[in-house]
Design a protein around this nucleic acid. Structure first.
Lengths: 262, 262
DNA sequence: GAGTGTGAAACGCTTCACAGCA
DNA sequence: TGCTGTGAAGCGTTTCACACTC
């Protein structure tokens, strides 16, 4: 597989972490361009993007050398180069599966970020929804996922169903030729190697935050800087973990964020 | 800051990456417990969580030694230990700011994942919304964020507003004593050091996926396995961890999902 | 002088492989 | 025998510091 001959040799294998940041730089740069800026320094751009300048320069260096020493970078040039690397010069048709609260929000975008991610198909199981247009696109049934995705050349699937439905939806997306999946359901999806999955998990995010609060509380012994408001350590009630049972969730209808609660 | 700080006295300093996975293990374990499982091996648990067993064992070792050689781990014990480490034994009151599509979805949870994250306040600027209850809680005006958060002892703020409002909302949350912020708006927030921020950015996620598709297309020169009709190697095995309640989420549109578009 | 581009050091996370205990 | 717990090796990412260019 070596092949590397593609584009001029430059496939240097950009670190995954850098790819995520490039997307952020792109947004900041677009904002700057809109306000008329034509050049930026690494210091300036990194400040707005929330990283340090060394990291920013390293990241940009993966694109090639597009800066001018003593001056900075040309905003337009960076925008184009980042779009090129991220593959944003072509369209990626999107399908949203699970038209609950979250799915609705996604479908209503109409067309995603600037350019590049038009929503072209919606799916749900609910008979009351099938056939009805949401954000201009009629909702289809889950069973038609393979056919429709194939016909419309969908390349990205966004799963916003309850967790129990997620794997089967995923399988159908794969059968329909979808290569990328953004999964909002709290389940670890099983996919063939050629499919890329990214997961967004609200519960996990909240729990990570919780961890940090807890850590902070521990070492709060003598934190000098406090913010005026009291705060109260709030001892916290134990939530009786004993029971554990929590069971919840079942599949709802609303295909929504994954938690079911009700 | 280079300083050594009080070198870890008690805290073994669990790697950030491990913390995120612990939350996943917790969900899987809760599901197993619900189905009556009392013990698991690292092989089993890691399989369901989508990681390899060595990593799982290493992660669990940060909690202490709770396994039994030759046997495995007791599900209940792991659940309790992970909850302890993640600080889930106490409540973290949540406020949602920006009641658009996404905000609504979040507010309607009613109470978050299983236990621990009750939504106690909602905010928006829209006069038509202020005063109206959503998911049982009346919407308040952004101006009251500091007072209300302080009164209700909110510790987590979820920002689901349009990007332009995000920083000012953030400042008010900080003024109200909020320590953790989950940001759905596509902006890099500026916060004091004692506040923890996590960001969920739909646009970035899609662009990362786009990058991978592009890379893949490049080296598709002679990929033997193509997707013809992918038949799927059958991925499906039962994961069924589904059950546990937790949740998920994300994105919002109007409120912010983040992409700006032009 | 100002600011980029980058090798090399430092750091943190992951993987390996095996000792140790039930 | 079976599986956990963990030191140590391996790797990817971040940071440093400075040569180089405008």
């Amino acid at each position: 597989m070596a092949g590397v001959e593609d584009t001029a040799v430059r496939a240097k294998q950009i670190p995954e972490a850098a790819v995520a940041r490039l997307a952020v730089y792109l947004r900041v740069l677009s904002g700057m361009a809109e306000q008329g800026a034509t050049t930026v320094s690494s210091e300036e751009l990194s400040g707005s993007a929330g990283v340090n300048s060394a990291k920013l320069r390293k990241d940009l260096s993966y694109l090639g050398s597009y800066g001018t020493r003593g001056v900075g970078y040309e905003v337009q040039v960076l925008v184009s180069q980042i779009e090129r690397i991220l593959g944003l010069t072509r369209q990626h048709r999107v399908a949203v599966i699970g038209i609950g609260n979250l799915g609705h929000a996604l479908a209503n975008y109409g067309g995603f970020p600037g350019r590049g991610f038009p929503v072209e198909a919606l799916f749900d199981t609910d008979p009351d929804l099938v056939g009805i247009p949401v954000g201009g696109i009629p909702v289809s049934h889950l069973e038609d996922i393979p056919r429709i995705c194939s016909e419309r050349e969908i390349s990205v699937g966004i799963i916003a169903t309850p967790p129990t439905a997620a794997q089967s939806v995923c399988d159908r997306l794969v059968a329909g030729g979808v290569q990328c999946i953004l999964n909002f359901a709290p389940v670890v999806l099983q996919v063939p190697a050629h499919v890329e999955v990214r997961k967004v998990d609200l519960a996990v995010e909240l729990q990570i935050l919780s961890f940090h609060v807890a850590r902070r509380a521990d070492r709060a012994g003598e934190a000098p800087e406090n913010r005026g408001t009291p705060g109260l350590p709030d001892a916290g009630l134990p939530i009786d973990n004993g029971g554990t049972g929590d069971g919840r969730n079942s599949a709802g209808t609303d295909g929504g964020l994954g938690m079911v609660v009700r």
